[in-house]
Simulated scan of single mutants.
Amino acid sequence: MYSTFSRLSALVVAALLLVMGTGCDSGVDPNLQTENDEPAVQFATSSVSSSRSADSVPIEVTISNAPDREVTAELLYANAISETEATEFGFPGDAVVGDGNAYVAGSVTFPPNAEGDAATATVDVPLSGTSDVDDQLTAVFTLQNVQGATIGSRNRFELVLGAITLLEENFSDEEPAPFAVVDAPDSGSSWFLATFDNDQSPYMEANGFGADTPSNSWLISPAFDFTETNGETLSFANAKNFDDGGVEQGLLVKVSTDYDGEGNPEDFTWTDITNREGAVYSEGGYEFVSTGAIDISDEEFQAEEVYIAFQYITSGTDGGTTELWQVDDILVRAQ
């Protein structure tokens, strides 16, 4: 059985998730940040999808700056804020916390000075296989009772049951691919891969401050075939700093079905989906937030070659006419 502290902590964590949503970075200018050597445990990725026919789903947890002591953590299924029901999973009877608002789904242990493969641990979350639900539903997991380290910023993990993952990119290979950076003629700056010693790094960044001309740079996905799927959604993490008084927002999100994959994107037709219902964007301070699932299942997008683009624009090149934007954890799903 789990301790009273464990149960109370689980409920507190679930409540905090309701208020805070996903984790965020330090909110400090990367050029001014100091390195953080504090050992931290977090999820390896922010989400994964699975069919309900699978026996279990592996969820990876990582540690950075491992100390010279053992580190342990529990994986919590937050039933109270999940779309799924606990019956979707094969949790043992003693995993329930309190009145069923949460379940301890498993635990991980990292040895002292964990590096390489030892710095990643996996919890196999069992699926019950008894659900008769066909809809795509999201289960939320978080970390709790971390002993010997702190909890990193990626402390919300979403398991989407019944979903198909068409693309999941967090730029961990430290290169933009499979995305392409395409600049409009005379763009003063370009999207680039940025790295820093924080939990979100690496990510794609655009910053037109100090450029020779205003910026118009595009970060464009590979082509998707939406003719064999339905219920397509897009989500991504984003962070902002500074304000451009000449534009409503320096980051625009667009979809095209006639882009040729290599030309000047300005010569093709794009549908602006930036401000679709429910989409969330950073308000500044380098704070990463998740957009949530943006619906891109429009009938006009049901084509064999569908491109998604992140367009970065500025009205000028100095303070008050440029914004800095960062993009990460890009996820395209379908049913």
Rank of each mutant, 00 (worst) to 15 (best):
L143Q: 04
T165C: 01
T130E: 13
E266S: 15
N275T: 03
S82T: 02
V160H: 13
E262T: 15
V97S: 11
D124W: 06
D272C: 06
T271I: 00
S49E: 13
R276H: 02
V140C: 08
I63A: 10
L234Q: 02
S64H: 12
Q249T: 02
T84L: 06
G245E: 00
A44N: 09
R333Y: 07
A114G: 03
S217H: 00
P112L: 09
I294Y: 06
I81F: 12
V104C: 00
I273W: 04
T72A: 13
E175W: 02
Q335W: 01
A223G: 05
G319F: 11
R52G: 07
E175Q: 10
E158K: 09
E60M: 02
E175D: 11
V28N: 06
L143S: 05
A15D: 11
G23Y: 03
K254T: 03
V61G: 08
P112V: 08
E60R: 08
V160P: 05
G285S: 07
G21P: 01
S217L: 03
G116I: 13
P178T: 03
D94F: 14
D94A: 11
N113E: 09
Q144A: 11
V255M: 03
G116M: 11
D117T: 06
E266F: 03
G319M: 09
N238A: 00
S64R: 15
E115T: 15
V96S: 12
R69H: 00
A73P: 06
D318Q: 14
F110Q: 05
I313C: 01
D29W: 06
Q42C: 08
T213Y: 12
E35D: 15
A105W: 01
N238R: 03
G292I: 04
S107P: 01
T122K: 09
P39F: 08
A279V: 04
S47T: 11
V181T: 04
A44Q: 11
A149H: 08
A73D: 01
G250C: 04
L75Q: 00
E262W: 10
Q147E: 14
S153G: 10
D134I: 05
E35L: 10
V253F: 05
P222H: 06
V140Y: 10
E205F: 09
D134N: 08
A163M: 04
L76I: 07
T34V: 14
V140M: 10
V48I: 14
T291W: 03
G284K: 04
A44V: 15
D298G: 11
A194N: 12
E228I: 10
A223L: 02
A121C: 12
T130S: 13
E38H: 12
I59E: 10
F110R: 04
L11N: 13
S64I: 13
F224T: 00
R154M: 14
S82R: 04
A102G: 12
A309H: 09
G162F: 05
